[in-house]
Design a protein around this nucleic acid. Structure first.
Lengths: 211, 211
DNA sequence: GTCCAATTGGACAAGACTGTCCAATTTGAA
DNA sequence: TTCAAATTGGACAGTCTTGTCCAATTGGAC
């Protein structure tokens, strides 16, 4: 995704990171139209010209931000998924714990939220960004999650017709309360996340646990 | 919410409506910063000055749009809720049908989607709008839906601990697939909505139908 | 120390936007 | 028909963008 690592020396790379990080914040705060290069430059403590040197123009900056955030978000999700209870002793307890980790990551990690909002807001104007995001973004997450669901099903823990649907519904149940809180501008605490996770997992298992 | 109906004569009201409708489209398309008064004027086939005469400035236009959309969306939801199967003969079938109507309204009605996006995007910059929307918007919908769920529970059709949670999870399950499609820029057909509704209702009932 | 690339800050043109003013015109009502 | 209010279009100042150019400065590698 970012192949510039070779071309740019150490110091520049750090500066480049500062730029993209600041740009991510500004873009997500103000949208594409509302974000100004000057604001990014100030936030990154960098000259405006340096930004143009690195990414060309505003479009370039935007794409760079999306690319970076997509990558980071995917990596975090992967490492989270490695803690998924594929062969649980106590399915209820372990799925609840995993779900709590999921929600906590969602709460802590501004990156994913920003990316989601960026993608939702600007995908109409930037179909190309849309493509990248669909491929590496939520579509990928869903299919990875579906694979885990399948494992649980073939292990005899769950039963359902369609693993993809099960994954989607699991994530919908899990994020439902969280979304509501977030929309109200609140950031659920760790205990709140745990309770949400309990309720989501409970409903999910009521529907899909093998009887 | 809009008390100007008295003060403005018939023709002006029609013009005012055109303005607000056009503004809604433009705001939702381009966000607050990206929307230009000129674009609204052109779309509404109205002089730019007329807009300033009616709503004062850009902020005023924005608030007027949010107010109008909130009102319209709430009204539509109310009339939809009146078709909720409170005392069903065949719970599965009737809840599925209701769910399909719900999704179809979501698909057809650009208003609600626009409003949702507006609220999500600009609530940071406009806390007052945020208040209005929370009161008349999704919060209200959820509590109305929870009341229906309670009726089904006391009728012996469903069983759960918390009607608000049940309502939230119901709506989460219902809109999960729809959201995914919509995010990809697709507009589910009526048959697709029906199938989504079937799957959502099925899972919901697996979890909450009285056994 | 020397050299080269990166960085800086400031100036600049071109364009878009907001909000205001105003004179001419249109519209609805009496 | 007459009159007042609403509407129009155009001009305007002021502000903020983006993107470019350039000369001066900095910093690391050798």
């Amino acid at each position: 995704m970012s192949t510039e690592a070779v071309e740019t020396p150490a110091l520049a790379k750090s500066k480049r990171d500062r730029i993209i990080e600041a740009a991510a914040t500004i873009f997500c705060q103000d949208g594409y139209a509302g974000a100004s290069i000057d604001a990014v430059a100030t936030k990154a403590s960098v000259s405006r010209q340096t930004i143009y040197n690195h990414v060309g123009d505003k479009d370039g900056l935007f794409k760079e931000v999306v690319s970076a955030l997509t990558e980071k978000s995917a990596a975090r999700f992967d490492s989270l998924l490695q803690t998924f209870p594929t062969k649980p002793h106590d399915l209820n307890a372990e799925l609840t714990e995993f779900s709590a980790r999921f929600l906590n990551q969602l709460t802590q990690d501004k990156t994913s939220r920003w990316l989601l909002r960026l993608a939702e807001n600007e995908s109409g104007r930037y179909p190309e960004l849309f493509t990248i995001w669909r491929e590496y973004g939520s579509g990928r997450k869903r299919s990875l999650m579906a694979a885990r669901m399948s494992e649980l099903a073939s292990g005899g823990y769950l039963e359902f017709d369609d693993p993809v649907l099960a994954a989607r519904q699991y994530m919908a149940l899990l994020t439902a309360e969280w979304r509501a809180e977030f929309q109200l501008g609140r950031f659920p605490s760790e205990e709140e996340c745990t309770r949400m996770a309990e309720r989501a997992a409970k409903t999910f298992l009521r529907a899909f646990a093998r009887r």
